[in-house]
Design a protein around this nucleic acid. Structure first.
Lengths: 245, 245
DNA sequence: AGAATAGTGTCTCTTAGACAGTATTTT
DNA sequence: AAAATACTGTCTAAGAGACACTATTCT
C-alpha cells in the first residue's frame, strides 16, 4: 500500500495548552468555554484553550502553542513545555483526532486578570483542583490531570516553581511557590541551603521591606532553562504551624 | 473562521518507534532502510521504524505504535513509552507533518536477531551511538537523540534497565544493564542495597550456576509498571577495574 | 519592648561511596 | 588449592530534616 498520493484520510490535528498561574496563592489554570454553533462538539463545556493547527501560519507545533498562548494571555514567552499527545478514534465525535498538549507557567506579575473573552469565547481562571472536577470537553480532564502530575513530579527536582513568580523574588516567595504547588510545607533551612547550593538564584542589590526584617531579593541565574537538582526535595515531615486556635 | 466542515488541510500524521535492546552487551536500536520509489523522500536512508496512522486500523496512538513494533519485532507488549511529538512545515518535503515518537525496551530474551526484512524494507540493529552519526531520514537523529537522553536520564532514578533483561536475572545482570545504559560503572554494594531496599525485585527459588558461587535469580516485583527511586543513583566515582594489562 | 519575618547554627539520621572481607561454587 | 564471581560488613562523608537561635526591620 504505497500511497505516494497522500490522499488517504488524515486525523484532525490540534494543539491545547494548559496554562498555569498562581492566583490568590492558589495554583490555577485558564479554561475557555466552548461555543454552541451547530456541529460544535461539547457546546458550553469548559475546555483547555487550543485549536486546530493552521499549516499556513504555524511553523511548527511549539509555534502553534505559543500562538494560542499569546491569543489568550498576551504573554509571549513564559515557560512552555511539551506535555504529550492524545489521539484516537473516540476522543472527538467529528472523527479520529490528535491533540498535542503543552503546559505553560505564567509569572505572577503579568495581567492574569486579563483574558476575559477572546475570539468570542469566555475565558476563566479556575483553581487547578476545582477544574479537575468540571466535566471538561473531550479528554481534557485527562490532559489536565497529566499536566498536574507532571508539574508536581517535576517540582520535586527542578526549579519550575520559580517561573510562577515575578522576575525578582525573595527566598520566602520561592519556598511558598514550591509549597503551593506541592501541597505540603517544606523545611526552611534545608530549602534555603539547597536552593543556594544549587546556584539556582543570584541575589540582586535590593531588598523587600515590610513590617519585619528586610528580605534579600533574588532572580533566576538562568531564566532561559530550568535547573534540575541532583536529588529530590526530601520527604519533609510537615511540621504543624503554631496555630493560634 | 468557524470550520464545521473540517475540510481545511491537515498535517500528515505518523508514529515512529525507537526500539532499544541490548545486543552483545551494547545498547542498540532498530533501524529500517527507506525505499526508493519515486516520490519517496530520503530514499535509501536509514530511519526509525514507523509510518502514517491508519485511522481504520489504529484505535489510538499507542495502538499504532504497538502495531509498528509487532510488525518489526514480533514482540507484543514490551515496555513502551511516549517520547514526544515533532511537527512542522519543514521536516517532510511532502508537507506539514507531525510524528509521534515512542520508545520501547525489548527484553534480552526475544529473537532480536529477527526483523531481517519486513514489508520489503531492510531492518538492522545499530549500536545506539553509531546510529546517531548515520544521517538518518527526516529529523530522526533528533528524535533518536531525545530518546537516548530520556532513557539515560530516567535510568538514574527508575527501574527501566530491567526491561532490557529476560524475565529472570541476577543482581549482577541488573547492575550490568544499568552500567551499559549509563556508560559508567556503579558501586556493587550500594547498588544492591538500593535495589533491594526499593523492593524493585523479588527472588525466585532458583540460582544461576557458573564456575563460581551460584547467583540468586530475581524477577521484577511489578513488571507492568516501572519503579521510581526517591533519589538518584549517586555520582559513582568510577573505580578502575584491576586491569591485567 | 513586641511583633513579625529573615536568616543561621547545630545536632541527628539516613544513605551513598569506598573498599575490604567472607562465601560458595567449578576446575 | 586456585580461580572466579556472589554477597556482606564497616567506615566515612554529605546531605536532609528538625528545631532552636540570632538578626533586623516596623509599630
Amino acid at each position: 500500500m504505497k500511497s505516494a498520493s497522500l490522499s488517504f484520510p488524515k486525523p484532525l490535528t490540534s494543539v491545547d495548552v494548559v496554562i498555569f498561574a498562581m492566583r490568590n496563592d492558589v495554583l490555577s489554570v485558564l479554561l475557555v468555554q466552548r461555543g454552541a454553533d451547530p456541529g460544535e462538539p461539547f457546546p458550553h463545556r469548559w475546555a483547555l484553550p487550543g485549536g486546530f493547527i493552521d499549516i499556513d501560519r504555524d511553523a511548527d507545533l511549539a509555534a502553534c502553542a505559543r500562538r494560542r498562548l499569546i491569543e489568550k494571555t498576551g504573554v509571549a514567552s513564559p515557560y512552555l513545555e511539551q506535555l504529550g499527545s492524545w489521539g484516537g478514534a473516540q476522543r472527538d465525535p467529528r472523527g479520529w483526532s490528535v491533540t498535542h498538549a503543552y503546559f505553560a507557567l505564567l509569572p505572577n506579575a503579568v495581567p492574569t486578570d486579563a483574558a476575559p473573552k477572546h475570539g468570542g469565547n469566555h475565558a476563566r481562571w479556575y483553581a487547578a483542583n476545582d477544574a479537575l472536577a468540571l466535566a471538561l470537553a473531550f479528554d481534557h480532564v485527562m490532559i489536565l490531570n497529566a499536566a498536574l502530575e507532571r508539574l508536581r513530579a517535576k517540582v520535586e527536582y527542578t526549579s519550575l516553581p520559580a517561573y510562577l513568580l515575578p522576575e525578582e523574588f525573595t527566598l520566602g516567595d520561592l519556598q511558598q511557590s514550591y509549597e503551593r504547588v506541592l501541597g505540603r510545607s517544606l523545611e526552611k533551612s534545608a530549602f534555603r541551603t539547597r536552593v543556594l547550593a544549587a546556584k539556582l538564584v543570584k541575589s540582586v542589590p535590593r531588598v523587600r521591606l515590610g513590617s519585619n526584617r528586610p528580605a534579600q531579593l533574588y532572580r533566576l541565574r538562568q531564566p532561559d532553562q530550568p535547573l534540575y537538582f541532583a536529588r529530590t526535595l526530601g520527604t519533609a515531615r510537615t511540621r504543624m504551624k503554631k496555630a493560634t486556635g
